[in-house]
């Protein structure tokens, strides 16, 4: 047996661990660097607030920004209340039997279904069967179905993190189930629920597959007038200008990517901030 010098092996393992973490973060840094370097030149107020021109080779990306914003906001407004209610029911009210256990298992597994499957499902149900057409509403419903299991799961984790003893202490004082949930459980679960919601927003903002067949327009000459209109969205727009349009100026492609990246990073930072803020103020 060869004997290692303990000092040397200490240094060696440090080096390996350091390299591994560098390896993990390096690609992200490189990607951000490349996108910023190539896209920064087109970023201007003008770029953000004007319509695309000349077959999208010039002008701005306003409709895509608005489209993404509208779809994401509608989706979260639909899924957050529904998801939290479902989580409260499953965690706080539902009896522990085979049916509820099957439902819980189903929800966890649904969160792992690839997004393109949801896209096809939404196309079949909302666009074709319910005849809603390719529209904001179809896209929102599809994304909602995709995101609901995630919201339910994160909300359930947040509810579970509130100690059971708080509930018991409240019941023992004669306070009912709903009042206990409303005044003890939910306020203490809120940070976790909000973090989950913000991360969901970040995730939906970048999704392409579920809206590809349900909501996204290749090009829309005007901004959407109602929820039954098609919309342009940032991820899909990015896909189109980088693959479908000949002679597309590179800096617009990278500029669009930069806007999308900036949006998602900002949202993620908000999530981290919420987490850290509540950690500091956590009281038990």
């Amino acid at each position: 047996m060869m004997k290692f010098n303990p000092k040397l092996s200490q240094k060696l393992s440090y080096l390996v661990l350091f390299l591994a973490s560098t390896l993990a973060i390096m690609p992200v840094i490189v990607i951000i660097f490349i996108i910023v370097k190539n896209g920064m030149s087109v970023i201007s107020w003008e770029f953000l607030v004007s319509m695309p021109k000349n077959g999208m080779r010039e002008g701005g990306i306003l409709p895509a920004i608005i489209g993404t914003f509208v779809i994401v906001m509608c989706t979260i407004m639909l899924t957050l209340p529904t998801g939290v209610c479902a989580a409260v029911y499953l965690n706080e009210y539902a009896r522990d039997n085979t049916l509820t256990r099957a439902i819980k298992l189903g929800i966890v597994n649904l969160a792992g279904v690839p997004s393109v499957v949801y896209g096809l499902f939404g196309f079949g149900i909302f666009v074709m069967f319910l005849k809603l057409g390719v529209s904001i509403i179809s896209g929102v419903l599809t994304l909602s179905i995709m995101e609901l299991p995630v919201i339910v799961t994160t909300s359930r984790n947040a509810l579970n993190s509130v100690p059971y003893s708080f509930r018991e202490a409240s019941w023992a004082l004669g306070v009912g189930r709903w009042q206990t949930i409303r005044h003890i459980v939910l306020p203490n679960a809120l940070p976790g629920i909000m973090t989950g919601a913000v991360l969901s927003i970040a995730r939906i903002s970048g999704e392409t597959a579920p809206i590809l067949f349900t909501a996204a327009a290749f090009y829309a000459p005007h901004l959407p007038h109602s929820i039954f209109d098609q919309v342009m969205t940032l991820p899909y727009h990015l896909y189109i200008i980088s693959t479908q349009i000949p002679n597309m100026p590179n800096n617009i492609i990278f500029g669009t990517a930069l806007v999308l990246l900036f949006m998602i990073l900002t949202i993620s930072f908000v999530a981290i901030f919420v987490r850290v803020y509540f950690r500091k103020h956590e009281k038990w």
Partner: peptide
């Protein structure tokens, strides 16, 4: 049940203050 627990209070082994 709620009426009953209002009449019969209970103190647990570990002090459980609410985070407020």
């Amino acid at each position: 049940m709620e009426e009953l627990r209002k009449r019969i209070g209970m103190l647990f082994a570990m002090p459980i203050s609410f985070p407020m």
